[in-house]
Nucleic acid binder design. Structure first.
Lengths: 182, 182
DNA sequence: AGCAGGTGTTTTACTCGTGAAATATCTCCT
DNA sequence: AGGAGATATTTCACGAGTAAAACACCTGCT
């Protein structure tokens, strides 16, 4: 304990770092030599995601939307055309059951509309109503500027660099796990 | 549409990039000029977290544990001493109700024990049983080497760099949102 | 002493997501 | 034609998390 082996693998010998750095230090005292390197990435990604979600929810809640609901609306908006529920499942990475529920809620609120396919009566086509489109278009800029503010504490060059490195990671992860399409 | 403004802010003018890059391109065609920079970080962090959690669950499930349950056990292990439920709440960033449930489940499985405080009868003290400690000590290395494998697709230097940048981000986020301690 | 208000923990009621089964429809093969 | 098997979507039963209330106990003031 005490301040023994402070700079295990954190790099900057500066202060104490973030929560994950503390956890890593604790592990090093209990299991010295343990390869904790993956924690420094995966632990941080998880923790960042948790904190960001809390933060992000704020502007959306003002619009009466949950993040997954907004994802559905935004997906319809950015693709620019109707989507079937299955396509929404693939785009938003949610389960079919979840999408069904969300579409029901969004339909009841008049933000999306559905129509049956003329050829294949199994499939439905979902599109934004004018209200839904306007909602996305008004919330999205708020959301983005809020996010910009949240990230503003990180040096601009580092933000770019972080985006690039996260892309490299995500490409790997999607290759291994996500998108198992032929 | 088509391949018009491909390299909006992705950096490498290479292929198509990850899922987030695609989303960003879609937004640029619908709302040209929109500042989508935050998505490239926040969107990726969220998506990475989602994919990593699916992946990570695998080795833990083999041990019959969920990730949050393992977090409780690991917290007890790395601190090296008993913790009260409140302390576990603070360490694991879970709600009080969730911790109560998890402790109940872990107690029933004989992985943790509780005792009442002698001075203050409101507080409980939770500690790992021998079985619980052994379980953590056997699962953790598996978990870490699994995670190492998952990350192995990213260049070693980039992994270090990514850890450093995520730490910078997390310090900002924790300063703004988490740890609101005096 | 005795009570007002604070803190630690659990309980309650509810929401939301999930996997698997159910339903409806289509497609292809014979 | 007709049915076996595939596909799109919804329904069902349940597990897990949450916020807020409840509960139990402590502390400090009068």
């Amino acid at each position: 304990m005490t301040a023994g082996n402070g700079r295990t693998a954190t790099g900057s010998g500066a202060a104490l770092g973030d929560t994950v750095a503390k956890v890593v230090r604790q592990w090093q005292t209990v299991h010295p030599g343990l390869d904790t390197a993956p924690m420094e990435i995966i632990g941080r990604v998880n923790r960042c995601a948790a904190l960001l979600q809390q933060a992000e929810d704020a502007p959306l809640r003002r619009a009466g939307l949950t993040r997954p609901e907004f994802d559905v609306l935004a997906t319809l908006r950015r693709t620019g055309h109707e989507l079937t529920p299955s396509e929404i499942v693939r785009e938003t990475f949610a389960s079919g059951a979840a999408v069904t529920k969300r579409l029901k809620a969004l339909t009841e609120r008049g933000l999306v509309e559905r129509r049956g396919d003329t050829r294949d009566r199994r499939v439905a086509h979902v599109r934004l109503t004018d209200t839904g489109r306007d909602l996305v278009d008004s919330v999205l800029p708020e959301q983005l500027s809020y996010e910009t503010a949240v990230l503003s504490g990180v040096e601009a060059d580092n933000r770019r660099e972080l985006a690039v490195l996260l892309e490299e990671l995500l490409i790997q992860l999607e290759g291994r796990l996500g998108v198992p399409r032929a």
